[in-house]
Design a binder for these strands. Sequence first.
DNA 1: AACTAATACAACCGCGTTCTG
DNA 2: GCAGAACGCGGTTGTATTAGT
Length: 200
Amino acid sequence: MAPKNSDASAKKVMNKGAWTAEEDKKLAQCIELHGAKRWKTVALKSGLNRCGRSCRLRWLNYLRPNVKRGNISDEEEDLIIRLHKLLGNRWSLIAGRLPGRTDNEIKNYWNSHLSKKIINQTQKEKMPDEPSTPQTAMPQKNQFKEEGTREAWNLEAYNFDVNDFFEFSTEGSSGLDWVNKFFQFDGDQWLRVREEVRIV
DNA sequence: AACTAATACAACCGCGTTCTG
DNA sequence: GCAGAACGCGGTTGTATTAGT
């Protein structure tokens, strides 16, 4: 087990809080020289007095080329909703299917917009005296812990293993292409899954 | 105009996993 | 194979902004 908060264990007190334009510039220059790896080195070489993980987050979420900011389209929103229904709070996997979007942005968007939207939608659809039911049958994070590893996690509720069906490492194809192909699958299991996942 | 509540989002933290010597 | 360091992920918090009264 790793020591807790290894970056913060440094004696020196690190900068915290919002990044300034000057810091962004320094970080970008440093990454240009040293690459977006070895974040501790980047943090040291940049002279920013920021911890490595803070530099990594800033780079991945804001400074990295091709990062899209804001204006999540209806198509993207629909895709997020579908993927969340399939995958639960696996933001990095969801983000992996939305080119230019980051896990942090999707997570924030979900928490501030979509979760409420879906709750309202569910309430509208529900009969007034219908007993309340969980919004999703997806296992949550605690279940990963019980089973030992996140990656071994399977979707028992749907009788399939998500990792058998998705090639998450595939690069280049857009999320929308992928999801369209996915929903065209016509096996018996998928017919059931499609019923579960359909957002109307 | 002033205050309060709600919302949005950037950033931090804890913890599990992977990498490296 | 082991221990410590580094990384990556998801949950949570802090704060700026906007809306409502």
